[in-house]
Design a protein around this nucleic acid. Sequence first.
DNA 1: ATTGAATATTCCTTGACAAGAATATTCTCA
DNA 2: TGAGAATATTCTTGTCAAGGAATATTCAAT
Lengths: 118, 118
Amino acid sequence: MLETFRALADPSRLQIVALLLCEPLSVGTIAERLRIRQPQASKHLRTLSDAGLVEVHPDAQRRIYALRAQSFRDLDSWLERYRRGFEQQFERLDHVLEDLQVNAKNIKEQTNPALGRG
Amino acid sequence: MLETFRALADPSRLQIVALLLCEPLSVGTIAERLRIRQPQASKHLRTLSDAGLVEVHPDAQRRIYALRAQSFRDLDSWLERYRRGFEQQFERLDHVLEDLQVNAKNIKEQTNPALGRG
DNA sequence: ATTGAATATTCCTTGACAAGAATATTCTCA
DNA sequence: TGAGAATATTCTTGTCAAGGAATATTCAAT
């Protein structure tokens, strides 16, 4: 995950990923769309590739880069732990509220036992 | 998103977020668990806070840090676009395969018209 | 084989940021 | 109000990574 976040923690690379969301593209096209120089595009793609976020499919002297679905699934399952974490926090909160209601009821009954068998 | 990724692109901060997944913690406890010095913990928490990933709840002279659910929801909706993107890629692939089958059938029928009305 | 197109790599400089040390701030309690 | 605990900030230093320029590599076509 660390490598993934490091790879995405750059504006150019975030733009590249957004571009590739639409369609696989060659290095030259990416450089053109982002208005950066070709070597920078290559370097960013190298970083993204090392992090497993993109894969390359050579086509003659071109190299077509595409998003790698697995890495996004990995990111999703990382995030899943947090989704569950928040759910559990809400559950705990619910229990606390339940307990508060039960306690309030008990206190009422202790104060006025007639309420116990309404 | 860029700020979020930048905040998560550090091993200590990634650990802090993982810690807070279990329960909100004070600065001192976080520093202790991560075996880093208190000022570093404060600085990392500052970064996470600036990125909106955590929120603070003062308790006497302690400051209890907790994950901020909204930022993870934002991350989730960012990721959602990519989930959809891959779905569409598969759909396109399915259509291509369908077309291939249709074409194969047509070619068969053109080669042997008797197959057209089985 | 040679040329040209597309891409990758290297070297260099510079800016950003993390860690460490010291200090400042904030809050509680006696 | 003074002391101490918990946390935040500042300053410095060292490291890493991005951008630019130049060059190397790879591949197709003639």
